[in-house]
């Protein structure tokens, strides 16, 4: 077994309104920053032991499918690195 850290990034699908990002962008505007867009995402770091990178990826993908992301509104990305 190898120790891995998986990073799951969960984002709203393209085209799904993100009121929190919009509000944050407005606040940055108010602070005097100039920006053309702001997107928000949630990131989870998961430490796990697995026999291979592929297996770790499979496990974490299932975690994302079943809980971390909501497939109706989210896309997600999984990155695996050895710990």
């Amino acid at each position: 077994m190898t120790a891995y850290t998986a990073t799951v990034t969960v984002r709203l699908k393209h085209g799904v309104l993100d009121p929190e990002a919009k509000t944050t962008q407005r606040a940055l505007d108010r602070l005097g920053f100039e920006l053309s867009a702001l997107r928000s995402a949630d990131q989870y770091e998961i430490d796990l032991e697995a026999p291979s990178t592929e297996n770790a990826r499979e496990q974490v993908t299932e975690m994302a499918d079943r809980l971390l992301a909501n497939p109706t509104i989210h896309d997600y990305e999984v990155q695996i690195s050895e710990r």
Binding site: V16, L17, N70, T72
Partner: peptide
């Protein structure tokens, strides 16, 4: 209900936040 798949779709942050 929607998170558990009993009903379709999702309920998320109001547009006016």
């Amino acid at each position: 209900g929607s998170e558990s798949g009993l009903t379709p779709g999702a309920f998320t942050t109001n547009d006016r936040a």
